[in-house]
Amino acid sequence: MATIAEPAARTASRFRFILDRREVLGSIFVAPAILYVLLLVGVPFLLAVYYSVSAYTIYDPSWRFVGLTNFRQILQNPVFLETLENTFLFTFASQLLGLILGKFGALLLLRPFPGRKIVRALIILPWAVPIALASVAWEWMFDSLYSVINWTMITLGIIDRSEAPNWLGNPHLAMLCVIVVNAWRFFPFAIVIFLAGITSVPQDIIDAATVDGAGFWRRNYQIILPMIFPIVAVGLIFGIVFTFTDLSIVFLLTNGGPINATSVLGFQGFQVGILSGDVSHGAAISLFMLPVLLLMVVGMLRFIRRREI
C-alpha cells in the first residue's frame, strides 16, 4: 500500500507546486477573460471583416469578394461624411463637457458639507441608471409641448410661449441635446477619476504651493492637474472609445434626425447593416471606426508617455 500511495502523493504535491508558480496561476485566472474577449469581440470582428469585403446582403446571401469597393462607396456618400463629422462633434464635445462637470463636481465633493456621503452615493446614479430609462426622462424634458425646460423659462419670463424652442426638432438643438445627455451620463465617471487623482497628490506639495503664495486656481491648474493628467487621460480614452461606438442615446432620443443631423457611425452602421439589410456596407461603416479609434488611442498614449518622461 505504501508503494501505491507514494506516487499519488508525489503527483499531488507536483500539481500544487505548479499552481504556486505566479505565471501559471495568473494565466489560469486571466484565461476566462481572454476567452470572453475572443468569443464576444474577436469573432464578431472577424465576421465584420468577412462581410465588409463582400457584396453580402440579406436579399442576396451569396458571398462574393469585392475588395475595398464598399469602403470607397461609403466614403463617396455625403450622408456618411456628415455622419462622420457628427460622430467627432458628439464624441469630443460631450467628453469635454463631462470633464468640466467632473472637475468641478470633484472639487465640490472634496469640501466638507452636511450630507456629503449621501451626495457622493447619489452622484453615481447617471452612470448606473439604464440609458433606456434615462432617455425616456430626457425625451420628456425636451418634448416640444411638455418640456419642463421650456416651461421653466416661460415662467421666469426668459422667453415667450411662441419662442419656445423645439429641442429635438431643430438640427442644431438636437445635436446639443444628445451632447448634453451623453455628458450627463459620463460626468460621474469623470468625478470618480478626478477624486482618485486629486486625493493621490501628496498634501506636502499642496501645502508648499500654498506657502509660496499659489492661490486656488494656480494650485489646481498649474500643480494638481499636470500631476494627475495621466490618470485623467486614461479615463478620457475609455470615454472616447465608448462614446465613439455608442448608438443608444441617438437611437432613443432622435433616431438620427432631424435630417441625419444627429446620426453617428454606430447608428448609421446599425441602420444600414441591420434595418436596411445591406450587411456588407453596414460592416464597412462599423469597421471604419477601428482605424480612427486606433490612431486616437495610440496618439494619446504616446502623449501620456512623453508627459511622464
Rank of each mutant, 00 (worst) to 15 (best):
W138V: 04
R64P: 14
E82H: 14
S144L: 13
L109A: 03
F88I: 09
L46G: 05
F80K: 06
A106D: 05
I149D: 00
G105I: 00
Y50C: 14
G98V: 00
L133H: 13
Y59V: 10
L109I: 04
E82D: 14
A55N: 14
F71N: 02
V49F: 10
L89T: 15
L133I: 15
T69V: 14
G115W: 12
W140N: 12
G98F: 01
P61D: 01
A93H: 06
S135R: 11
V43A: 03
Y51Q: 09
L122D: 03
S135L: 03
A93N: 11
L101M: 08
N70Y: 07
A134C: 01
R120L: 15
L107R: 07
F65V: 03
N86W: 09
G67K: 13
G102L: 07
L97P: 02
L107N: 02
P61Q: 05
A106S: 01
Y51V: 12
W127K: 02
T69P: 12
F45C: 04
L101R: 04
K117Y: 10
Y50V: 06
D143C: 04
W63G: 04
I149M: 00
A106V: 05
I118Q: 04
V79F: 15
Y51M: 12
L84P: 07
I124V: 10
L89P: 12
F45I: 03
Y51A: 09
P61I: 06
S135P: 03
L133C: 11
Y56R: 05
Y50P: 04
L39H: 06
V148E: 02
P44W: 01
L145E: 15
Q73T: 11
V66K: 05
R72Y: 15
Y56T: 00
M141V: 01
L39R: 06
I118G: 02
S144Q: 10
I123S: 02
G67S: 13
N70G: 03
F142M: 09
R116V: 04
V136C: 11
A137Y: 07
D143A: 08
V79S: 15
A132T: 11
A134D: 00
L109V: 05
F65Q: 08
V136D: 04
Y51P: 04
I100L: 12
W151E: 14
Q76T: 13
V148L: 14
Y51W: 14
Q76D: 11
A132P: 00
I149R: 01
L40S: 10
E85V: 15
L109Y: 08
V49S: 05
A55V: 07
Y50F: 14
Y50K: 12
V41I: 13
W63F: 12
V53C: 05
I123F: 05
F92A: 04
Q76M: 13
N86H: 09
I124Y: 14
F71D: 02
Y59C: 11
T91M: 05
Y56D: 02
F104M: 03
A132R: 03
I123G: 00
A137M: 09
L75I: 14
V119L: 13
T83C: 05
F71R: 00
D60G: 13
F80N: 03
Q73P: 11
R72C: 08
Q95V: 13
F71L: 02
F45W: 06
L38C: 02
F90K: 08
T83N: 06
L107Y: 08
L125K: 07
Q95T: 09
